[in-house]
Design a protein around this nucleic acid. Structure first.
Length: 210
DNA sequence: TGCCAGGCCCTCTTTAGGGCCTT
């Protein structure tokens, strides 16, 4: 049974290339349609936290002052997720910070990312928008605590991932759905989703035909 | 001095522009 790690960063800005740093990370392990383990930690990159970020996240300079250094946190969370495939909402954002913070400890990501936002755009075009908070309400997913804290957002994205897995499975007949299946689906143009799923079903039928 | 992300997607597109989404 495949396990994935759903992650979420809180950061001081939009881009590590512009000097932004991670100040909190959470990772949630999902297997068999449920959350089986959680990791969360603040980290202290010893940098300025803009007032906007403090207001958005509730994470203050005082809170990170006593937090562990980023290198220790990144080693811990990298150990926690291991080689499991990674998932995030708008994964291009979290992937940039994941790779940048790993590079600071001379480590390299070993697994691919999948993106719940790209998948939701394809599977739920009727949603009002594809913000994580909107999709949680739209899909009737469990509330996970304060938005814009890493663990709450990682849990919300994990519930969304589980719903996406269920919905895709429901549109297919017995075909096994994996992280790789969905990572491919997220790159299919929206108009081609039905044809892509039909193709998956046909391949599954051929592979299982006696 | 002023500005500063980046990838994806849609469309009044493709010789481009603008909105979405993440903090």
């Amino acid at each position: 049974m495949e396990t994935v790690a759903v992650i979420d960063f809180e950061t001081t800005g939009m881009s590590p290339g512009q000097g932004a740093r991670a100040i909190e990370i959470a990772a949630v392990l999902v297997r068999g349609g449920r959350i089986i383990d959680r990791y969360q930690s603040l980290m202290n990159p010893d940098t300025y936290i803009p007032p906007f970020i403090e207001q958005l996240t509730g994470i203050s300079q005082a809170m990170v002052r006593s937090a562990p250094a980023p290198d220790r946190v990144m080693r811990d969370v990298a150990d926690f997720v291991g080689a499991h495939p990674l998932v995030a909402h708008n994964a291009s954002f979290d992937q940039r910070f994941w790779d940048a913070e790993l590079a600071r400890i001379d480590a390299v990501r070993v697994q691919p990312f999948a993106c719940t936002m790209l998948l939701a755009r394809r599977l739920y075009p009727e949603a009002p928008d594809h913000k994580l908070s909107t999709l949680v309400r739209f899909a009737g997913l469990p509330a996970s605590g304060r938005a814009h804290r890493a663990l709450a957002d990682a849990e919300a994205a994990a519930h969304l991932w589980i719903r996406i897995m269920d919905d895709v499975q429901g549109r297919l007949q017995g075909a096994g759905i994996t992280h790789r299946t969905l990572a491919t689906l997220q790159s299919v143009p929206r108009a081609g989703v039905d044809a892509h799923l039909l193709g998956l079903q046909r391949r599954f039928d051929r592979a299982t035909r006696r």
